[in-house]
């Protein structure tokens, strides 16, 4: 497992050193959430009612921004081919890169969400639930996103295409993420079922994502 962690540490270091990627995603998230009341009107009751949905959708879009770069540089400078002929299965390479994406994008976005919740007048009781659901749901974004990033490596208009391919696949995560928060807010017992389904979806994506992304990467390198 040691090469896995070496690769993971390298990718995290690169993402942190560049800094731009994380900053861009967080900045985009902030701006989208700040624009929404300007478009919808400053009605705090309305905003607090739709806040979970807005926070989730804006988070999806922000995470998409940095997905396209997941394999791009390594593919272009040939280090991906070196990794492929090295001892580590390509599935693990893809998993390490997706995990690095989650650690450097998913977690910061999930932690920023409650702060942005203030702007939308989100009920203070929901903050814990909000962070919990987002931490449970964002791995699916990175790991399913890895498939899209691997598929669009050599496509024209890759970034735009990536959004078209991947956003429909996020629908289950989005639905259960929002329904878990709504369930907790309405004090119904809908939180745990939704939260458990959401976690199961993320666990499933940990398997599906690397396998499919590695298959796509092998085809790309043929």
């Amino acid at each position: 497992m040691s090469p896995f962690f070496t690769l993971l540490r390298r990718d995290i270091t690169l993402a942190l050193r560049e800094g731009g990627a994380i900053g861009t995603a967080l900045g985009f998230y902030l701006i989208v959430i700040a624009l929404l009341p300007l478009g919808l009107g400053p009605d705090l009751n309305l905003l607090s009612r739709i806040a979970p949905g807005l926070l989730w959708i804006a988070l999806l879009l922000s995470a998409l921004l940095s997905l396209g770069r997941m394999f791009e540089t390594d593919f272009e400078d040939g280090s991906l081919e070196l990794l492929a002929i090295g001892g580590m299965p390509l599935e693990l390479v893809a998993a390490a890169k997706a995990l690095a994406h989650w650690l450097t994008t998913g977690i910061p976005l999930a932690l920023l969400a409650p702060v942005l919740g203030i702007l939308l007048n989100l009920d203070i009781a929901a903050y814990g639930v909000l962070i919990a659901t987002m931490l449970a749901g964002t791995p699916a974004i990175s790991f399913i996103g890895a498939i899209g990033a691997a598929l669009t490596l050599r496509a024209r208009r890759g970034g735009l295409l990536l959004a078209l391919l991947i956003l429909p696949l996020y629908v289950p995560t989005l639905i259960y993420g929002i329904s878990a928060i709504s369930g907790a807010l309405l004090a119904t017992n809908a939180f745990w079922p939704s939260f458990l389904i959401l976690s199961a979806l993320s666990l499933g994506s940990l398997v599906l994502g690397p396998i499919a992304a590695a298959a796509a990467l092998r085809i790309q390198m043929q």
């Binding site: 498939i147 598929l151 669009t152 050599r154 496509a155 024209r156 208009r157 295409l161 078209l164 391919l165 499919a212 298959a215 796509a216 085809i219 790309q220 043929q222």
Partner: peptide
């Protein structure tokens, strides 16, 4: 969209299949 945005036909076929 994926099939039409990849130039190489055999590459496009396999990626679309994935």
């Amino acid at each position: 969209a994926l099939r039409t945005s990849i130039e190489d036909e055999s590459l496009a076929s396999k990626l679309t299949a994935v």
